[in-house]
Nucleic acid binder design. Structure first.
Length: 261
DNA sequence: ATGGTTGCCTCGCAA
């Protein structure tokens, strides 16, 4: 839409297995910027041509079998960074950030962290500490930015169909939620919750146990906006339709709209 | 009830 810009985030759980579904959704929804996670393919195997045919430029950070993130944008993509700063030994493809127009945007796939008694949980928390430090650095630039992706954090009990069942899970542990709040406390705005303080909605439903049919979901995909971006926020929605399709990802897209100025 | 589902591309791992 003229005068505004739509930014979507979507964990597609394999871009190759999901290509037809993703292309269909892009044609129908037409977001200006798309932040993808869980590509599950190496960078050269990313089906860039299919997205370019729809008018998108692509910045891709992939790896074999797991993780993988991308930014798609109808406007040119500049000044790409392909990793979250702060740990040169971290080889996971979980972060890509770039400039699109006047905005800085990032697509992130935050570590799941389960099981919590393994080294995966401290890795998650350390990753969140690095993300906070980097968000502080971005804030210091005073350039408006959007950090979108699969945060693998259920922020509050109302973001989960059964908080008690998730009490010990890395997505809902107090340390994970505290680290997420600490990000917000820098002055970032979580787009969906900011606009709908009391609404219950989910972005992920497990493949098992007919969770989608029973609406047993959790809200873990988030768009975090800098103050300058939040001042332009006019709408946010969760599009459940892609989750109901055959061969669906277990996540569904979240889209925010920023006034274009 | 230690089940169940999906994608990777292996004979299990991650989610």
């Amino acid at each position: 839409m003229a005068g505004s810009i739509d930014i979507a985030t979507w964990n597609v759980n394999s871009v190759k297995a999901r290509l037809a579904n993703v292309l269909d959704w892009l044609k129908a929804a037409g977001p200006d910027i798309v932040l993808l996670q869980e590509l599950k393919c190496e960078t050269p195997a990313f089906p860039a041509a299919a997205f370019e045919e729809l008018g998108y430029n692509c910045a891709v950070v992939g790896q074999k079998s797991w993780n993988g993130v991308a930014i798609l944008s109808k406007q040119p993509i500049d000044d790409v960074i392909a990793a979250l700063p702060g740990d040169d030994d971290d080889t996971h493809a979980r972060y890509v950030e770039a400039t699109v127009g006047t905005l800085r945007v990032a697509s992130l796939y935050l570590p799941n962290g389960n099981p919590v008694d393994s080294d995966k949980y401290p890795y998650k928390l350390a990753w969140m500490t690095r993300l906070r430090a980097h968000a502080e650095a971005l804030l210091a630039t005073e350039q408006p930015f959007v950090l979108g992706g699969d945060y693998n954090v259920i922020p509050q009990p109302e973001d989960c169909y059964d908080p008690e069942a998730w009490a010990g899970d890395a997505l809902f542990r107090l340390d994970s939620r505290r680290a997420f709040r600490s990000l917000l406390n820098l002055g970032l705005t979580e787009a969906w919750r900011a606009l709908y303080p009391d609404r219950v909605a989910y972005t992920f439903w497990d493949y098992q146990g007919r969770a989608f049919e029973g609406d047993r979901g959790i809200r873990i995909d988030h768009l975090l906006l800098s103050p300058g971006a939040a001042d332009r926020l006019t709408a946010c929605r969760i599009d459940k339709a892609p989750r109901g399709r055959p061969k669906a990802s277990d996540h569904t897209p979240v889209i925010c709209t920023l006034e274009d100025r």
